[in-house]
Design a protein around this nucleic acid. Structure first.
Length: 597
RNA sequence: GGUCCGGUAGCUCAGUUGGAUAGAGCAACAGCCUUCUAAGCUGUGGGUCGUGGGUUCGAUUCCCGCCCGGAUCACCA
């Protein structure tokens, strides 16, 4: 049992004995003791004063005496301003270190997978443009949350829903057909997604100039936007696509194929993957029957033009269109359909959508409509909403060319990592292959950590210059700490300082050592908390704390110079375990740690 | 205007179910390479936790009002 729980129980027992009262364990508040005071756990005694009818200090001292007498793990206590600081014995922490060391996963026990399935959808790209910085946040968030959930014992299915149809793809297709001269990624020597993106931009430029011409000829802006020949042609193309026109479908398949190849490269670079990929071209008509059913049951309303709506005014929202007058579905219809389909397919316990906060309203409506239609699991849908990534100059705008391309960013990070590493002489004696691998590891570590350490729901600022910072609270700092720990162990091995698995049961730990063991001890709880809050940021900030603590520790105590072999042994074991916990924690963020750097 | 989210040091961010003197990093300044790797360590300065009220022994945390910033309120996805 966790030591906190033991203390809680014993405090309750103490109150029963001393003040002869039964209490609700909830009012027993056990927190971690602040660094500047002596102790490991702190009992806040204020809530207990009503029961004890004594002064804070007297109450604390009564309970403290009882604890020391009755709990073997508790050595002593001190009282400061109504806070009872409890000192847990070094032997207890030693035993924690020992059990962590002999367990196969060091820091935490991998839990048995439960039967509950969690579906997590992320990435969900459009196929008309390459991935950018915003997608990176989405992708690594989704992937990391999936890993965290797995670590906390859930069964997770990672899905991607590719938006491969619609007017935006037709725009790229049309521009390619008109001005592309049968260009291919191979001929142009660029990634397929980039090529398709270029034609999307081309379309937009030509379209704008057509609008300008029309406006010059006296049309209103609104008219011109609708009447420009290009947009009409694109719409015709979409209709042909829907009708299954083979020539349009052929171009569509060809260009989408290019894009997928490009996306796969980017995903691979980022180190993310999916268990299943859905395509909107296959799901876009889903949900129609559900809407029809809802209408038949009078849960939805039909307007005079034939369009079908959900009335959400009672929930404080507006009416929401579910089916157009011409019978075609909209975004919401599809999402209703896919949610129901996935429920049938996976019987998921919950489904998480990793989608930007601009769609908060959409997901609010999705849940409500499903509920209205009688699906009780609608409350198990969770929108993991994340904020925008902003640049120092402001928001990313594709029109103004201020979008940060995912591939370019990664490449830039890699070359910067290389520059800095060379400058510091970190890569001396590396083979070209090792150089490449290490720089990639560091660059991705920097990028991923920089993004994941921020609370998802907050908008975040991405400063390209400052993000490639390897000092302080950064991925490379943590990687560096791990590499150092490995280096110590290697050295110890060379010097035949073979440390045994036998941990002496009685040895005095320094306060720094105890701090590190406490952090290791917390790891499992942190994972559970992070899983509950879908928060990689929690893991990130935890592992930083551990790395920092450890860095300070081995600065203060040159382990290999230690003359007492028992102390040296303990420190080497601590080094080993702390390193492995850092590695496990970073793995949950999708960040690998190098053996050397 | 309605709804949702944010506002903590000059900047980027933490802050556990309400607890002690609100914490890191960057930037600035001053030190530390004969240790295992200085991508590091130590120290100094920097705060009316947007603001005004309320609840409480105790509020950055919970409730209400206001101010500022963002998102959204499409027969786009």
């Amino acid at each position: 049992m966790k030591i906190e729980s033991v203390i809680k129980q014993e405090v309750a027992a103490a109150i029963k004995l001393i003040y002869n009262q039964d209490i609700d364990e909830k009012i027993v508040q056990i927190t971690k003791t602040k660094q500047e005071f002596e102790g490991d756990f702190t009992l806040v005694v204020f809530p207990l004063l009503k029961i004890s009818k004594k002064s804070p200090d007297q109450t604390a001292s009564d309970i403290g005496d009882y604890l020391v007498k009755n709990v073997t793990e508790i050595n002593r206590f001190n009282i400061i301003k109504g806070f009872l600081n409890i000192v847990v014995s070094g032997d207890y922490w030693l035993s924690i270190l020992k059990s962590a060391y002999v367990s196969p996963h060091y820091g935490y026990k991998k839990k048995e997978s439960s039967e509950d399935v969690t579906l997590i959808e992320y990435s969900s790209p459009n196929t008309n443009k390459p991935l950018h910085l915003g997608h990176i946040r989405n992708n690594i968030l989704g992937w990391s949350v999936a890993e965290i959930l797995k670590a906390s014992g859930e069964k997770v299915v990672k899905v991607n829903l590719v938006n491969d149809r619609g007017i935006h793809i037709c725009k790229s297709m049309l521009a390619w057909k008109k001005w592309g001269n049968e260009e291919t990624p191979e001929k142009a020597k660029i990634k397929g997604d980039k090529l398709v993106g270029n034609y999307y931009v081309k379309f937009d430029q030509e379209y704008k100039s057509q609008i300008a011409t029309l406006v010059a000829e006296g049309a209103s802006e609104e008219e011109a936007t609708k009447k420009a020949p290009l947009i009409i042609e694109a719409q015709e193309m979409l209709e042909k696509w829907e009708a299954g026109d083979s020539s349009v479908r052929t171009i569509w398949e060809k260009m989408n194929h290019w894009v997928y190849k490009g996306f796969d490269e980017t995903y691979k670079k980022l180190g993310i993957d999916f268990d299943k990929t859905y395509f909107e071209s296959e799901t876009y008509s889903l949900g129609k029957s559900v809407v029809a059913e809802g209408l038949a049951k009078d849960l939805l309303i039909k307007k005079s033009d034939g369009s079908i709506w959900a009335d959400l005014t009672k929930d404080g929202l507006d009416e929401k269109l579910l089916l157009r007058a011409n019978g075609t579905s909209v975004y919401m219809t599809q999402d209703l359909g896919t949610a129901i389909q996935r429920q049938k397919e996976y019987h998921f316990n919950k489904q998480i959508y990793v989608v930007g906060n601009e769609q908060n309203y959409h997901f609010q409506v999705l849940s409500l409509v499903l509920k209205k239609l009688g699906y009780s699991w609608s409350e198990n849908l969770y929108h993991l909403s994340y904020g925008m990534v902003e640049l120092p100059e402001g928001k990313m705008k594709s029109r103004e060319g201020t979008v940060v391309d995912a591939d370019e960013l990664i490449d830039e990070m890699i070359s910067t990592a290389k520059e800095i590493s060379l400058e510091l002489g970190k890569l001396d004696g590396y083979t070209p292959d090792e150089v490449k691998k290490t720089c990639k590891t560091i660059a991705l570590g920097a990028l991923k950590y920089f993004i994941l350490k921020v609370d998802p729901k907050k908008n975040m600022l991405f400063n390209p210059k400052e993000s490639i910072d390897f000092n302080g609270n950064t991925g490379p700092f943590i990687q560096y700490t791990y590499a150092r720990s490995k280096s110590i162990l290697r050295k110890a091995n060379e010097q035949k300082l073979q440390y045994s698995k036998e941990i002496p049961s009685k040895i005095k730990l320094s306060s720094k050592e105890t701090e590190i063991i406490k952090l290791i001890y917390e790891f499992e709880a942190v994972i559970d908390q992070a899983a509950k809050e879908y928060s990689p940021a929690l893991i990130a900030n935890y592992v930083y704390e551990l790395a920092k603590e450890y860095n300070q520790f081995y600065h203060d105590f040159p382990i290999l110079k230690e003359t007492n072999s028992e102390v040296q042994n303990i420190r080497l074991i601590l080094t080993d375990v702390a390193g492995e916990v850092i590695k496990s924690a970073m793995a949950l963020l999708g960040i690998s740690v190098p053996e050397r750097m």
